[in-house]
Each structure stands twice: as structure tokens, then as C-alpha cells.
């Protein structure tokens, strides 16, 4: 499906938190949603999922979604939403019940549910041994993955993840991001990744949506933002990933324009390190 927003405004009480947002989200991309705290990222993804009321037009595949008089639409079932610290919201007595929760409310049979559990669990690197356990018996990282798996159980075509790696240790962070990437590849799904970690954004995204003070400053391919329009990031109060800073520093010192087409760290290192070595930085 194609999700299209036209001139969306959102107001909480007296305060307008989103201004004139127009965009379209297409299938199969990793789109990072970035901006400072309070820039409107969270509200934007809540609008997409249909969780907050708004003014403006929302189209699904070209068909307008009906709004009630208060500006609410129902939740969009094709979009999965993983909130921050989702493990705080686990409430069933076993992992199996937790995973089945959403589907049971859709009256699916037990065999269908179990079948789906066995395809979803490996995606987040969990084994079926934990199904009978109570969520509180699991480690922090496992709980997080159960919470994410319970959203994947509904087979969303778009997955919204709000700071999914917050509070995890470095290896668990990397693993989780890789699992999300794999899910995206396998299901041809879309990921909307709300994050403050510019390194992760540069590493995993296809596209980036940049928010600042309630405005959408742009929706770019990730390379365009980091390699060509990095001044926008500074305007929005965000730091550049260190690899980009390195690239810019070497460009500044050498006075050369280094041809880079990818903003992944390994690709930048591949271009920059030979220059550093050629400068003979090691022969002090």
C-alpha cells in the first residue's frame, strides 16, 4: 500500500506540534525519522498509525481515509507499532499468550497462531523454549525482542519502531538492528525507524525524514542528506555521524572533493583511509 499524507496539522491543547506535513511512504524501504526531542517525530508516526487526531488528508492507495468530526481515524491494522521500551507493556502470563494476544482478538485458530509464532521467533533470534516462560523471567534484551515479535505477529507491512535499541548494550543493539533489517528484506516490508543515533541512521537507512520544530524539513535518500545536505542536520540541531565528520575533515585538510556514494562507515573508511595513509600520518 502507499500511505500518503497531505497538509497534516496536529495540535495538543494550545500547542501545534505538527505543521503542514505532506509526504508519501512507499513499500520496502527503511525510512529513518530523525529530529531533536520534541521535533514532532513521535507524533508523526502516531498520525500514520491512526493513534492521534489531526487535520488534513490521509490517503491509502489513493483512497481518502474517513475522519470523524474530531479528526480521528481508526488504527491502521497494516501498520505495526513498537513503542519505546515496549517491554514495559508486556502483561500476559506467558510469552506464548503475549505473542498470541493480537491474533486471538481477531479470532484466529490456535494452529494458525502457533504456525506463525514458529516463523516469527527465529526472526528475532528467540527459541520456542521460552514460550511457556513468564515474561519477567527473561533478560531485558529478550523481553524487548518478545515485545517486538508480538507486533510482527500481526504481519504488518509497515513497522514503526520508536528508539528500539534504547538501553541495550552495544552487541544487542547491533543484533536487533540487523534482525529488523532481515525482517525488512524477508517480508519486503517498510521500516519507519525513529532514532537519535545518527550512526545507525547512516548505516541502515534507505531514506530519511528530517523533522524540526514540528515541520518536515525534507524527505531524502540517506546519501543525499548526509553527503550533500549535511548543513540541514546542523540547522535541525543534530550531530553528524563521526564517519561523516571524518570525511569532511579530510576534505577540508586536503582541499579535495572526495567522491563517495554511500554513507555507510565501511565505505567512507575505504575512501578516506588510503588518503590518511598516503599523507604518511604514521611516520612521526
Amino acid at each position: 500500500m502507499v500511505y500518503k499524507l497531505k497538509n497534516i496539522n496536529v495540535t495538543y491543547g494550545q500547542k501545534q506540534v505538527l505543521h503542514h506535513i505532506s509526504c508519501s511512504i512507499e513499500k520496502g524501504k527503511w525510512i529513518s525519522i530523525i529530529g531533536q526531542t520534541g521535533a514532532g517525530k513521535s507524533t508523526f508516526v502516531k498520525v500514520l498509525k491512526g493513534l492521534v487526531s489531526f487535520q488534513g488528508d490521509y490517503e491509502l492507495n489513493g483512497q481518502p481515509v474517513k475522519q470523524d468530526s474530531k479528526g480521528n481515524i481508526g488504527v491502521i491494522p497494516e501498520i505495526g507499532f513498537v513503542f519505546q521500551y515496549p517491554e514495559h507493556q508486556l502483561f500476559e502470563t506467558t510469552v506464548e499468550k503475549e505473542l498470541s494476544f493480537a491474533l486471538k482478538h481477531k479470532d484466529m485458530t490456535k494452529t494458525v497462531i502457533l504456525d506463525r509464532i514458529s516463523t516469527i521467533l527465529p526472526m528475532v533470534n528467540l527459541s520456542e523454549d521460552i514460550l511457556p516462560l513468564a515474561p519477567f523471567q527473561l533478560s531485558g534484551g529478550q523481553k524487548r525482542r518478545v515485545a517486538i515479535a508480538s507486533v510482527l505477529m500481526t504481519k504488518p507491512e509497515v513497522l514503526i519502531v520508536d528508539e528500539p535499541t534504547a538501553g541495550l548494550d552495544p552487541i544487542n543493539r547491533t543484533n536487533l538492528l540487523q534482525q529488523l533489517k532481515n525482517w525488512q528484506h524477508k517480508t519486503k516490508g517498510t521500516i519507519l525507524f525513529v532514532s537519535h543515533q545518527m550512526e545507525d541512521v547512516a548505516q541502515y537507512s534507505d531514506e530519511v525524514m528530517l523533522f524540526h520544530r514540528g515541520y518536515l524539513m525534507g524527505h531524502f535518500p540517506v546519501e543525499t542528506l548526509f553527503l550533500k545536505k549535511s548543513s540541514l542536520l546542523k540547522q535541525a540541531g543534530l550531530a553528524l555521524p563521526e564517519s561523516i565528520q571524518l570525511l569532511q575533515l579530510v576534505e577540508e585538510l586536503s582541499g579535495e572533493n572526495i567522491q563517495v556514494t554511500s554513507c555507510k562507515e565501511a565505505d567512507i573508511f575505504a575512501k578516506v583511509i588510503p588518503i590518511l595513509k598516503a599523507r604518511g600520518l604514521d611516520d612521526e
Partner: peptide, 16 residues
Amino acid sequence: QELDRILLAQKARGFD
């Protein structure tokens, strides 16, 4: 606030 977040998360899971 916490209750609000939990309700929202459940709503997102299709349970309003």
C-alpha cells in the same frame, strides 16, 4: 502518563 502510554500501545495492537 504511564497508563496513557499503555492504553495507546494496546490500541496500536488493535485493542481499543
